[in-house]
Nucleic acid binder design. Structure first.
Lengths: 208, 208
DNA sequence: TACTTGACGAGACTCTTAGTCTCGGCAATG
DNA sequence: CATTGCCGAGACTAAGAGTCTCGTCAAGTA
């Protein structure tokens, strides 16, 4: 996500003052902290910079836009809190994966962060690309579970892993963005069961 | 969606000049037209007013926000182009419903309109409520198909219609917002088959 | 016909916020 | 100890949503 003069390191040895790592951490942490607050305090570049004790230019030196900061804060946590699952069965893998995913995304702070990132992704094409890339990694992780199950011969032939993946993340994002129903671990487990059933069997009369 | 002095009509007979219906239509049509253009012309209140040959105040007299105009333009078309389906079977109803829905939402202009509405819904709580209310109507229409099937005894006991509905609309919105895969009628049909399979049977070992 | 009411187009105005630019200062390298 | 480049601070620009006001126009009422 970093831009700025980072690529000059390839051309010649670095001189001058180095990046302040404490400032980087403060910025990312403050973003999550501000978003997590109950008062709907506006999360603007100015409030982030002020709360992090940092100049605005320090933010723009390392990130191309406000959305990019939000995305990195989000990515950091998502990559952390969702461990790969390998229980040996599709049902087990799927339930573990979706439980962890829904647990994280169901937290109020994380949900708000996800919403903001998705908004920025719609507003700025560069952010759209970056977000798409992050989400592609998440989809790939989930698709892996179905593909392993297919290799084991667990799933019916003709099963479309991409559709199954979109059904899972679709429920997640739809609920986060619309807010008509909560993301609970119970619903994650129920969804896991439904998708397992879908992958393992076919509708009556359908080939395969 | 209208506000302004509309509620005064209840208190006393209307006097003075009436609302210009041609202006209303021009505004809603111009919104769709501007959004549909290939050049990513910004769809701002000023450009809408100018293109519709209307003063900004005329917009704000009848809609509370820009998002509300977008939402009404979207609602108008959605309520129109998705007929209720009643083929007698869940598979048939579901496929007809999802085909019509994906066909409409898959059009470039409509997809962009949906994206913008969803963004506004995230940015403004009042818009969030209005959007939620529209989406609730759409969910209710789809849920009706599953409930009718349940009355016919077509679905397995323990089937959760709300989860099925969220899977369907989840795929739609997820694909629209992320843009990694198109909304085709073929995928609508495939999804309809998958959800039918899910509702009709249960995973092995699960009760019901 | 004359009066009243409220919508109309036009456009100036305020406010918020993202992002840029410039400053004097400071830390790492050589 | 000179150069380089990051630092915090804050002024500045630009875009866009929403408000306010003005003179005008149309639909009823007397």
């Amino acid at each position: 996500m970093q831009t700025g003069s980072g690529d000059q390191a390839a051309r010649r040895p670095h001189t001058g003052r180095r990046r302040n790592e404490a400032a980087r951490r403060a910025i990312l942490d403050v973003v999550v902290d501000l978003i997590g607050r109950d008062d709907d305090a506006p999360v603007t570049i100015d409030t982030i910079a002020a709360a992090a004790g940092v100049g605005k230019q320090t933010i723009y030196r390392w990130w191309p836009s406000k959305g990019a900061v939000l995305l990195e804060a989000m990515t950091e946590r998502a990559d952390l809190d969702i461990p790969p699952s390998d229980t040996g069965t599709l049902a087990g893998d799927l339930e573990a994966f979706l439980r962890a995913t829904f647990r994280l995304a169901g937290q109020a702070t994380m949900a708000r962060l996800l919403r903001k990132v998705m908004v920025e992704a719609q507003l700025d094409p560069q952010m759209g690309e970056a977000t798409r890339s992050f989400l592609a990694r998440r989809r790939s992780a989930l698709r892996g579970l179905f593909e392993r199950a297919a290799e084991r011969g667990e799933t019916a032939p003709g099963t479309d892993p991409d559709l199954l993946v979109d059904q899972a993340f679709g429920v997640l994002w739809y609920r986060i963005l619309v807010g008509h129903a909560p993301l609970t671990e119970a619903s994650a487990a129920e969804l896991a069961g439904a998708l397992t059933a879908q992958a393992v069997r076919r509708a009556p009369g359908e080939p395969g």
